[in-house]
């Protein structure tokens, strides 16, 4: 989606800054924001660019580096961490063959750490873009990843 189209949907008020950035970033296959885009948003809302950057650099959802089509966020806070099923971080890093913060070569997945996802009753849990997967086992993780890979090839 073009940035202009996203901007059109919002009044020119600073209060919509985060909503605009969230919507626009989501619409991009690379799930990231560029300097020029930030500048355009700053101009639209009539706020300093330094302000927009301050916001983008503060919230963990935003990235100024290109990311994969699917962002996998795993939680490692206490309820997930002590869950006896699997170590999600290590399992994912092995399955994807990347470290946290990296993107797979095929640009399909980016692996990120997220603070508690609020799915402690289904720990361990991950979020892939806007979908939650709970009570994960290694087997289940493999199936989920395969599904996304298949979806991509289809």
């Amino acid at each position: 989606m073009e940035l202009e189209k996203v901007l059109e949907r919002f009044p020119k008020e600073q209060t919509y800054l985060i909503e605009i950035l969230l919507d626009y970033q989501k619409s991009k296959p690379t799930q990231h924001l560029t300097e020029n885009e930030l500048k355009e948003v700053a101009n639209y809302l009539d706020v300093p660019e330094s302000h927009v950057f301050s916001v983008v650099s503060f919230y963990s959802f935003f990235s100024m580096e290109p990311r994969g089509k699917y962002i996998i966020q795993y939680c490692r806070d206490v309820p997930c961490h002590i869950s006896d099923l699997i170590n999600v971080k290590e399992t994912l890093e092995t399955l994807l063959d990347i470290k946290t913060g990296e993107t797979t070569e095929d640009q399909l997945f980016t692996l990120e750490y997220s603070s508690c996802l609020g799915q402690c009753d289904g720990a361990p849990a991950i979020r892939i873009n806007d979908k939650i997967y709970r009570n994960l086992t290694k087997n289940k993780l493999q199936m989920v990843l395969a599904e996304y890979r298949g979806d991509h090839h289809a």
Binding site: E35, S50, H51, F53, S54, F58, M64
Partner: peptide, 20 residues
């Protein structure tokens, strides 16, 4: 009212400086 300098980042990564 220039706002060249601003905080960026959070926690221990907080920095003072221009955008980007």
């Amino acid at each position: 009212d220039i706002s060249v300098l601003e905080f960026s980042g959070r926690s221990h990564e907080v920095e003072v400086g221009p955008a980007y």
